[in-house]
Design a protein around this nucleic acid. Structure first.
Length: 102
DNA sequence: AGCCTTTGACCAGCG
DNA sequence: TCGCTGGTCAAAGGC
């Protein structure tokens, strides 16, 4: 019943894995952009006991396509299709409560 | 019937 | 070299 409410960024993602990261004691879900030529990825991690209290979304890479399906462009990209910066220092977001980083 | 989520297994990098 | 942790794949189930 308890379905995790992750912040909708407007893009369409396909979940391809989920693991419990022992290092930080949190569950991490792996998503990939559904667009064919898009290598953008997304990782969502939360504390097993406080999903909404410690939610964390990590975006990796830039989308090779334009506007998302929805209108809300919450996911501010750096450069868009022009620059393809696949770096470790991706964008970290916090869902509502634990919003911080960058 | 099709799409997406789920869960375990498999694989790779590092100590 | 082995073991551990983290990342991805793939098949099954659910909606």
């Amino acid at each position: 019943s308890s379905h995790l409410v992750m912040p909708e960024d407007g893009y369409e993602w396909k979940k391809y894995g989920q693991k419990f990261i022992k290092n930080i004691q949190k569950i991490r879900s792996y998503f990939r952009c559904r667009h064919k030529l898009c290598g953008a990825k997304k990782k969502v991690e939360w504390h097993p006991s406080d999903p909404g209290g410690d939610l964390r979304v990590v975006y990796e890479g830039a989308h090779q396509h334009g506007s998302p399906a929805s209108s809300s462009s919450a996911a501010a990209e750096t450069g868009g299709a022009a620059s393809n910066r696949y770096e470790l220092g991706a964008q970290y977001f916090g869902g509502g409560a634990g919003a911080r980083s960058q």
